[in-house]
Design a protein around this nucleic acid. Structure first.
Length: 207
DNA sequence: GACTTGATCCCG
DNA sequence: GGGATCAAGTCC
């Protein structure tokens, strides 16, 4: 469970996306109190042909061009949603795609929404994750980081990123990203190399 | 390999 | 404006 973990501040996301992405592994992501420990993410940048922001701002990707710490939710393949968190500075249009997490909070609700019981299948893919957490188009642009400064804390936000438990450091491994046809040479998928909750297992180490 | 829908592109 | 294209995926 996520009790006692501290919320990530906005400044966490206002850094180069290739630093934020691996740092998110092992952090907890909650939407309306439902979620778990992030085990797989991908980084996308504006100078990256695989990124939605590569060809400039459009109505669809506008949130990517906004300030860091907001959710960018997009609709894809006719029936799925995927969720990112915007990084770097406003206008830089970088984001981290949340691809998989280890369910820890609200597991029964996730099972009901997914129509499955097996823990490993609840959030082991970007569209599975949004279905389990009930993230949709309506949540595009939602602020996801702790209000800065903390004195501005108002209504409890629906979205929370929580820091890794103190003293824990996952074994982060980078691999090529999944499901893209360009930019395949950039190893900007980051996973917890010891997790059983990935969308795909790591390639077996060559020996 | 099929499915499903909407954003984007390119032509006009 | 309108039709063609194809998508950061999932399940059988």
């Amino acid at each position: 469970m996520s009790d006692g973990l501290s919320a990530l501040p906005c400044s966490f996301f206002a850094r180069p996306v290739l630093e934020v992405a691996p740092d998110l592994i092992g952090c907890t992501f909650l939407f309306d109190g439902v979620g778990g420990r992030l085990v797989e993410v991908e980084a996308y940048r504006r100078d990256d042909p695989a990124s939605h922001s590569y060809r400039g701002r459009t109505p669809r990707n506008a949130v990517m061009f906004g300030p860091p710490g907001r959710l960018y939710v997009y609709f894809t393949m006719g029936l799925h949603f995927c969720v990112n968190v915007v990084c770097q500075g406003e206008g830089e249009a970088a984001a981290v795609l949340l691809r998989a997490l280890e369910p820890t909070d609200g597991v029964e609700l996730m099972r009901r929404r997914r129509g499955l019981t097996e823990l490993r299948s609840l959030c082991s893919g970007p569209a599975k994750l949004t279905q389990a957490l009930d993230i949709t188009r309506a949540d595009n642009g939602t602020n996801a980081c702790r209000p800065c400064p903390p004195s501005l804390d108002g209504d409890s936000p629906r979205v929370r990123f929580l820091a890794r438990p103190e003293g824990t450091t996952p074994r982060v491994v980078s691999t090529p990203r999944i499901g893209i046809s360009v930019g395949t040479g950039s190893p900007w998928r980051f996973v917890d190399g010891d997790s059983r909750f990935l969308s795909r297992p790591l390639p077996r180490p060559r020996g």
